[in-house]
């Protein structure tokens, strides 16, 4: 369920929160997206888009933190202590 794709907000228009719209860049393709659920979003930030609506502003620092954790594979998770 629920194909939702990250894209970068390049333009925001509209004053009334319920009708907030913007353009979102997906790898160079621009699509008009409704932004009423992410009124805080700023140009340049990434949003998760589903059915023409931004559902969330993606948290870059959170993403970086988890990826760093994963990439330093030694720190990935402590290995299990053995079966138990």
């Amino acid at each position: 369920m629920c194909l939702a794709v990250p894209g970068r907000v390049v333009e925001i228009e509209g004053a009334e929160p319920a009708f907030l719209r913007g353009k979102v860049d997906f790898g160079g393709v621009l699509k008009e997206v409704a932004l009423p659920f992410t009124p805080e979003v700023k140009v340049g930030e990434y949003v998760l888009v589903h059915a023409g609506f931004a559902l969330q502003v993606l948290d870059e620092s959170e993403a970086r933190r988890t990826l760093d954790d994963l990439n330093q594979l030694g720190m990935l998770d402590p290995p299990p202590e053995g079966p138990g």
Binding site: L55, L58, E60, E62, P80
Partner: peptide
């Protein structure tokens, strides 16, 4: 890991997109 530890918790492994309370504006509408 939870199963091996015998835990049964809710754990967020999609933290770049998900907050505990979700999206309040969306839930409101």
């Amino acid at each position: 890991r939870q199963l091996e530890d015998g835990r049964a918790e809710v754990e967020n492994r999609y933290s770049r997109a998900v907050k505990r309370e979700g999206n309040q504006e969306a839930r409101r509408i």
